[in-house]
Every structure is written in structure tokens, then in C-alpha cells.
């Protein structure tokens, strides 16, 4: 079974993140991802960057991944 830590490692390997947190039960996962790569990108393009990092694992090992994708500025504003 896939663990949230594995998903974090896969995302980290393909996308440079300022902050990353994945939680889940092995089937459904929730991720908060903060990356400078999201700047000037619409939501679809941001999610696609994450899907790209996960590659074929999205088809096979991960049933459902819910995500929030934020730029460092948006993340700071949210936590400010």
C-alpha cells in the first residue's frame, strides 16, 4: 500500500517545493503543495505539474489525490 511519505518523496523528486504535506489512508490522499513553479499558472496547469511528477503512479498506485496548489506568496498570505 502507498504511504503519504512515498507520495511526498515522488512529488519532491519531480517538483521543487517550498512546502509539501500529504496525508491519507492508503487509498485517498490529500496534499498541500507550495511551489514557485506554480507562479503565473492556472489551476489546471499547476495540477498537471504535480501529475507529471507522479507519472504512471497516478494510473496504478494512487486511486485519489486531492490537492491544493499554492505559490509561496499565496501560501504566505494564507498563513500571514
Amino acid at each position: 500500500m502507498v504511504t503519504p511519505q512515498q507520495i511526498e518523496a515522488w512529488i519532491h523528486a519531480g517538483l521543487s517545493c517550498d512546502f509539501l504535506r500529504v496525508e491519507g489512508d492508503g487509498h485517498h490522499f490529500e496534499a498541500v503543495i507550495v511551489s514557485p513553479a506554480f507562479r503565473d499558472k492556472l489551476l489546471v496547469a499547476r495540477h498537471q505539474l504535480v501529475y507529471q511528477a507522479l507519472g504512471d503512479r497516478m494510473k496504478a498506485e494512487i486511486h485519489a489525490l486531492s490537492m491544493q496548489t499554492l505559490t509561496p506568496e499565496e501560501w504566505q498570505a494564507r498563513n500571514g
Binding site: L43, V44, H47, Q48, Y51, M58, K59, A64, L65, S66, M67, Q68
Partner: peptide, 20 residues
């Protein structure tokens, strides 16, 4: 080029999945 379902299209354009 989107690995999950559901998918919403408006006027032929892909809008996103359920999070979006």
C-alpha cells in the same frame, strides 16, 4: 492529459477535476 475522473468541460475547454 489529466489522469483522473471527474472532468469538467465548458464550451469544449477542459476546466478541471473536482478540486479545481
Amino acid at each position: 492529459n489529466w489522469p483522473t475522473i471527474p472532468q469538467l468541460y465548458v464550451k469544449g475547454q477542459f476546466v478541471g477535476g473536482s478540486d479545481i
